[in-house]
Design a binder for these strands. Sequence first.
DNA 1: CCACTTTTAGCCTGGTAGTCTAAAACCTTG
DNA 2: CAAGGTTTTAGACTACCAGGCTAAAAGTGG
Lengths: 225, 225
Amino acid sequence: MRPAQVTLAVVLQVRDGRLQVLLWQRAEEPFKGAWSLPGGYLAPAETLEQSIRRHLADKVDVREVAHLEQLETRSDPERHPGEWQLATAYLGLVPSDVNPALPEDTTWHAVGRLPELAFDHGEITLAGRERLRAKLSYTNVGFALAPDTFTLSELRDLYVAALGHAVSATNLKRVLLRRGVLLPTGELRPSGQGGGRPAACFRFEHSRLHITDPFAVLRPPRVID
Amino acid sequence: MRPAQVTLAVVLQVRDGRLQVLLWQRAEEPFKGAWSLPGGYLAPAETLEQSIRRHLADKVDVREVAHLEQLETRSDPERHPGEWQLATAYLGLVPSDVNPALPEDTTWHAVGRLPELAFDHGEITLAGRERLRAKLSYTNVGFALAPDTFTLSELRDLYVAALGHAVSATNLKRVLLRRGVLLPTGELRPSGQGGGRPAACFRFEHSRLHITDPFAVLRPPRVID
DNA sequence: CCACTTTTAGCCTGGTAGTCTAAAACCTTG
DNA sequence: CAAGGTTTTAGACTACCAGGCTAAAAGTGG
């Protein structure tokens, strides 16, 4: 006797200054009418990542998911009322400048004000947000939330939405520049409504995940004691 | 058609000053005679964690595993030659002062000099070591590698073995004390062979995982700019 | 040209890690 | 019992980096 295997995705994007997650409304029991994470059954000869990409493609153009990583596998026998089902969750990130066409039953929801979700999808969504918040601090995941090119204020607003607290644009710039994850493009963005100095444009150096050795602690010393 | 689900464990311990992993030698095809990670099939009405604890119990006293966390789920359809099989790997840590009784077919192997392992167990083992190394820096996982009470030199030796590079006992002490994860017991350890000043004994404050907010970067500023 | 806005550069401060030196405390040996 | 060797420990010093602040730069609108 074997459990069914499904894949799920917590797809996050900053929209309207808030971190939002892609949800669809279930048309069938159980949890008919409840919001839930996109996903579905694993097919033969498929990896989990291929599976979640395939199911995601039903909801959103997968090319717009700039980053995808495995989150965790849920196995509580009671997590699905009718079926013994394991669920492997992925975290997906979508840059803030794309606005994918969505099916009728699918929309974005602010992670800060989630409705009751089906199954354990609420917990999974929060786990995804936590993973994002942690990685924003010691990796360059920002690239997956930001447009190709952006000003520092725009980037700060993304960080604010994702982290849930204020961020200093001054510090953000210095830190990311020093780490070499940010690159000035040289262009200027004309100032918008109400004037103000034109902002310099930046890009992320790499568009694949790169962790910046964050810990001064316990780094290899040059001399042993 | 459903895949089989197995659980695996990367059980690590520092032995003889080296980081070692618990392996058993397969008695059956495929990979007969090859070393592999302990684990086995998921049983009905069982969570993945219960499953790996059950399978681990065949090899080692599970009470001696001080920390257990989910690592990743492997899903390459080719990872097992004869069966469509998903494997969820766990990371387990055993304090250096216990020496569990082991079955005939099971022994410790230095992670630094692994033989060819069955399936993808080699990769999984290295992923486990990476996870441990990362978490040593920003959590208190050390508690799961160390005895109840220890001197700073002993703790440093554990870190050296796990991290694979030199560590300054001076820094280690200061960092862990400031973070409040280490606690002086007040006792002294009588000096051993050849004399030397007696060492102070320490304990870990908590014996459950606690992450110490590591990143000054992007922390909530008190004033916004 | 002046008031207002936003961005940017630069300085100062505080905290933490890495290095080094010397002292403390114990052992062994002559 | 004094001298020398060994290990641990405390403390000072330095370097680096993030957070906070201020003022200048560079636009817009009246």
